[in-house]
Computed example of a mutant assay.
Amino acid sequence: MGECWGEGTATFMILGNICTRSCGFCGVQTGRPETVDWEEPEKVARSIKIMDIKHAVLTSVDRDDLKDMGSIIWSETVRAVRRMNPQTTLETLIPDFQGIESHLDRILEVAPEVISHNMETVRRLTREVRIQAKYERSLGVLGYLKENGANRTKSGIMLGLGEHEEEVIQTMQDLRNAKVDVVTIGQYLQPSKKHLPVKEFITPDQFKKYELLGLEMGFRHVESGALVRSSYKAHKHIK
């Protein structure tokens, strides 16, 4: 699955389109995923070549059904893209792999320019918003990646789920303490009536406030605005 963002950037979702998790904000289908397509790495690499993509963002569903949680396909996809598109830069927007270091090491070994993992929300709301995820585990993943050689790390959060300003600022500080380089902050929008409702629409001034605070904290890049998503201006985050 691919999505083009212009300026030679596109996002590709690997490992199918059925997720083993059931997050309250996400519109991706939940259930039993299909079997792994071991030809997928080459297919993604060819698509990037045909589309002449300069910067590719790879992401995936969670695959808790697999022993390796999909980390082997992840690493093989990066390798295939490198072989076929040596000039293309890469961001890998990864799941938490349940925090298992051997799976994270596979991503580190292939050395994408950016490794991203989204916190999605503040600590208090994590259980409701990311039912099978843990706030501290996600922070630990980001910290482990940086401590073990990740060139640049990145994370994103959504606003409008009922969080308070001080909680957002604390989450941003937690990310900086984990030495995260880039943060994206956007407005949550409800995918369907079955998903969590929007509690608040954040004003442009508030988004700007978070941007300025983030830069003061030391983030290299802060993308903060209603329409910001994880891949927003992704090609700039390698600099």
Rank of each mutant, 00 (worst) to 15 (best):
I94E: 04
R137G: 09
E39W: 12
H195L: 01
F97T: 03
S224V: 03
R106L: 07
P41L: 00
G218I: 07
M119G: 02
L189G: 00
L93G: 07
E128T: 13
D96S: 09
G143H: 09
E136D: 12
G31I: 08
N17M: 13
I115N: 08
V57K: 06
L145E: 07
A234H: 00
K199G: 01
D68C: 09
E120H: 08
Q190K: 04
F25W: 08
H221W: 14
L58P: 08
I14G: 01
L142N: 09
T184R: 04
Q132S: 15
L227E: 04
G27I: 03
I202T: 11
K199P: 00
R32E: 15
C4I: 14
L139D: 00
S22D: 15
L196D: 05
P95H: 10
G16I: 04
L161S: 07
G149N: 12
R127H: 15
G218W: 12
D37R: 11
S192D: 05
A80M: 03
I131D: 11
T20P: 02
H103D: 10
E42Q: 10
M172I: 05
E120S: 11
D37V: 06
V222Q: 00
M158E: 02
H221K: 03
H221Q: 15
P41C: 08
T153V: 13
E200N: 09
V110N: 08
L142W: 09
V81R: 02
G16Q: 10
K193Y: 14
Q98V: 01
S230R: 00
E39M: 10
E34Y: 13
R176S: 09
G160L: 04
K179G: 12
Q132F: 05
K49F: 02
R63H: 06
K194N: 09
I53P: 00
A10N: 06
Y144T: 08
L58W: 03
N177F: 01
P191C: 04
Q190S: 06
S75V: 07
V81Q: 03
H195V: 08
T92W: 13
H164V: 15
M51W: 10
L159Q: 00
R123E: 15
